[in-house]
Amino acid sequence: MSKPPDLMQGTLDLLLLKIIALEPQHGWAISQRLGQVSGRELQVSDGSLYPALHKLELAGWITAEWKTGELGRRAKFYTLTPAGRDRLEQETEEWRRLSSAIARVLRVKEV
């Protein structure tokens, strides 16, 4: 099985914001959800997941709350803050511009 490609710098934040935007999630679920949604193409290594989540939290894009999760255990659920929602839109827009620009370049026919 080939390893999923490393995520481009900065895109992990965008993806995490997006997944959390779908619904408040705990870390493990976020990682699972990312795998599912991307059709196993994108995988965040578990070791990078938590530092990234904590960074987003410290930046104020997401906030967290302790609730009872599966297995009846305490789990930390992350929610988007209003600022995070704005940030997500902004970054999504950025990403679209960037990817369409790349796509345009790649469409140029070779002579």
Binding site: L58, A59, G60, W61, T63, T81, P82, A83
Partner: peptide
């Protein structure tokens, strides 16, 4: 508002 969250964290 973001700063409030960030500050709290």
């Amino acid at each position: 508002r973001r700063w409030m969250y960030a500050f709290r964290a």
